[in-house]
């Protein structure tokens, strides 16, 4: 067998073990090593599973925490069967997990999983972004006095909307009290703003009114429109706390 054919066959065999190709591949191995040919191939097959599983575990720490080792291992194994890695950096593996979970049986038991996976992937995405610096509180205050001042969110933010309390579920992995998960009533919608804070990622829980306003900033708008066109129900406190976040964290740019 030439090297090119061997390469194709062994790579496929590492990803998807099958006895027919395995016999053909190990027949190419020289005898005399301490490892038998089948054991030698097994090292690569096990290592492949282990590395990809570890990569998923590193990104999806909250899911791992919530479903535990056994279920996470089975989930990873199912995912790895469907998705190979086409990344040079193994840390990038796992980008389809949220979508994959929408039809995975584990999501019948844990309905929060697709949304939690989406949150964890975005968290990872924001973690690796450069922090953009927008306008500070004072500059924002000045803009509010101008008729035509167009602003939008800086790039290192994500505005999120979930059916469950995903931010609280995400934080469970860092809690020390084992009974907190049982006490958490996660079956409520949650509106979130995720942003860079130095080298870390910070998440803010928003009211629905704040979330509606922030959505406008994502695409960009005249800052005055916020007050002219929307939300008669929004309270001064909601506006004040939102602008404290936007100014304090410098999350708006003028354009």
């Amino acid at each position: 067998m030439d090297q090119k054919t061997f390469n194709q066959k062994i790579v496929n065999l590492i990803r998807t073990p099958n006895s027919v190709d395995q016999v053909e591949i190990v027949s190419q191995f020289r005898l005399g090593s301490k490892l038998s040919p089948h054991n030698a191939l097994g090292v690569y097959q096990e290592d492949y599973q282990a590395r990809l599983t570890e990569a998923l575990k590193n990104t999806y720490r909250a899911i791992h925490f919530i479903i535990g080792d056994d279920d996470f291992f089975h989930l990873a194994s199912d995912y790895i069967k469907i998705y190979s890695s086409n990344f040079s950096n193994l840390d990038n593996y796992g980008n389809h997990l949220s979508f994959f979970l929408t039809t995975h049986p584990l999501s019948d038991e844990y309905i929060i999983l697709p949304e939690l996976a989406n949150f964890e992937w975005l968290y990872r995405e924001v973690f690796h972004l450069k922090q953009d610096e927008g306008l500070d509180g004072e500059a924002l205050k000045n803009l509010l006095t101008i008729d035509q001042a167009f602003v939008k969110m800086v790039n290192s933010t994500r505005v999120l909307n979930y059916n469950y309390m995903i931010s609280d579920l995400f934080n469970l992995k860092d809690k020390t009290h084992s009974d907190e998960e049982a006490q958490l009533d996660f079956d409520k919608p949650q509106h979130l703003l995720m942003s860079k804070n130095g080298t870390q990622v910070k998440t803010y829980i928003l009211t629905i009114n704040q979330w509606i306003i922030i959505q406008k900033f994502v695409t960009g708008c005249n800052i005055q429109d916020i007050f002219n066109t929307t939300l008669t129900a929004i309270t001064p406190d909601e506006i004040q706390s939102l602008f404290q976040i936007l100014g304090g964290e410098r999350l708006l740019l003028q354009y």
Binding site: Q3, Q8, V11, I14, R51, L52, S84, S85
Partner: peptide
């Protein structure tokens, strides 16, 4: 070699 296009094994495989 480490794999094929779109299928990186993240393993270091020897050649003959």
């Amino acid at each position: 070699f480490t794999g094929l296009q779109n299928n990186n094994t993240h393993n270091l495989l020897p050649v003959a």
